[in-house]
Amino acid sequence: MSTNTTVVAEKGMVKQKSRSEFARKFHRQKPILILLIPGILWYIIFKYTPMLGALAAFTDYGTKAKISFIGFENFIQLFTSPGFWGAFRNTLIISFCNLLFYFPLPIILALLMNELIFVRLKRLVQFIVYIPHFFSWVVVGAIFAMLLSPSEGIVNQIIMSLGGDPIYFMADQNWFRSVLVGSYMWRDVGYGTIIYIATISTIDVQLYDAATVDGAGYWQKMLYVTLPSLKSTIATVLLLTVARVLLIFEQVLVMYVPSVYSVSEVLTTYSFTEGLLNGNIGYATAVSLFTAVVSAILVIGCNKISKKFLGEGII
């Protein structure tokens, strides 16, 4: 049936052969293109117009009564500032740890939850792990400070009962990054599983049946049916995660204390405390611009890799 209609459609198009390929395509896609208009307009107004503000990076906006262009002065200050390189290094380390430890977790969890036999249980577990997403970072910070407290926290009580010395995790340079990554996982892992669960739910049952007929066991089905079906979602989420991974902000701002500044000051908090909070918008924007460039490089790199492994890039 469908082959017949495409033949008819192609015949119809032959008539328009005089027009160029593009015009034909344009004509055919007109209704679709119209659907795109509101979205594109929205992006231009609310995303691209504000980007003009990035020019502030080349001004002394915020520090003087009159704005004037100062060229690359903010960037020179940036690259010569001692705090900046530390912040850059911390951003890369913390982001990398988040990608390494946090990113695979929702996938694994979604697969495991999918293996639960009782549907009600599956729903319940899904519901429970999703709840922490509602805690704001301030509260997560307070909860972790409580759980990790050297004197009263559960974690240290376990350590002490095993004969260890209590650790002041929240203020210890050797531990604080782990606290950041751990609390991030705790808060958002359940939220992250939603998208995978939604994708798993649409896998064609026939694929499983066919695999069963071929004699595939549970593991094989997970490896050869479920996981490949998630492939494109995983790649997309990875790319989108990479695009935002450097922007970790609120969590650090509410959780860090002076003794761990040197291991946890990231670009966003640096831009906030040394730029925005001082009203030095030009400088803050220069930091953001730098972050954007690094993010862009990461995204392009990630896209290249996914092209190599999946045969197609996301962007």
């Binding site: 504000p50 503000g53 990035a54 989108l240 695009a243 935002r244 918008i281 954007a292 862009a296 995204v299």
Partner: peptide
């Protein structure tokens, strides 16, 4: 637009 965030003021 995910990468290039202009910040709150613009």
């Amino acid at each position: 637009t995910m990468v290039l965030d202009a910040g709150i003021i613009p």
